[in-house]
Simulated scan of single mutants.
Amino acid sequence: MKLSADLQALSQRLGHRFERPELLVRAVTHSSRSGANRTDNQRLEFLGDRVLGLVMAEALLAEDKTATEGQLAPRFNALVRKETCADVARQIDLGAALKLGRSEMMSGGRRKQALLGDAMEAVIAAVYLDGGFGAAKELVLRLWGDRIGTVKEDARDAKTALQEWAQARGMPPPSYIEVSRDGPDHAPVFVIAVKLEDGQSAEARAGSKRQAEQAAAKSLLSLLEKSGS
């Protein structure tokens, strides 16, 4: 099987020559484009998430030989979360090679954080199945690069940090409410409000619900810090 020009370019950016090119094709195929003769990347995503986790666990242990489990866990979570995978995907322009259905393509799928993060995990699995754990490990360490050495214990996502803040004070988890949605279908803008049981709240705007929720949580955390709560 011969790769298309865009996938050949992606293979070069990955630094891996596929002996089984069909694995890369599957890794970049979203469920909106799958069919009888084309398998989507969901199973590869499942595997890639586990491969990434093992590589990161090993890397963090090697990076800091004195860190406790309590210090390592949040660093690990920060490195393997979907937002980080999506950032790495953007770094290699993975979105340009995604195989999407028309509706997903028209709604800006190549830029969606969830799709990019899932595809990045699927690509890791494709390299793992094609070249073994060593090849996948080399890929991950190279693409994640300095992130591994600079990640901090407090590098949790804002929603997790806000939930932990609430739980530590005996409150239920924060609630997130979609205030509005504007713009065309291919470029929506969401306004999300986050509210704590005691009435403290904040709002944020972003191009996806997930991003808006994170931004709202970050905003509320900042307000809580300033108020000394």
Rank of each mutant, 00 (worst) to 15 (best):
L10G: 10
Q12R: 15
R13A: 06
G15V: 02
H16Q: 04
R17D: 09
P21G: 10
L24F: 12
L24R: 13
V25A: 14
V25Y: 11
R26D: 08
R26C: 14
V28W: 07
V28N: 04
H30A: 15
S32P: 12
S32H: 07
S34C: 15
G35W: 14
N37R: 13
R38Y: 07
T39V: 15
D40K: 08
Q42M: 14
L44D: 07
E45D: 10
F46D: 14
G48L: 07
R50D: 10
V51I: 14
V55E: 00
A57H: 11
E58G: 02
A59G: 07
A59M: 07
L61N: 09
A62T: 05
A62W: 05
A62Y: 01
A67P: 04
A67Q: 06
T68H: 01
G70V: 06
A73N: 07
A73H: 05
P74M: 01
R75C: 02
A78Y: 01
A78S: 14
A78V: 01
R81D: 13
E83Q: 11
T84A: 09
T84G: 00
C85V: 01
C85F: 00
A86H: 08
V88S: 00
A89R: 10
D93Y: 11
A97R: 06
L98H: 10
L98P: 11
S103N: 12
G108V: 07
G108T: 08
R111P: 00
R111A: 08
L115A: 08
L116F: 05
G117H: 06
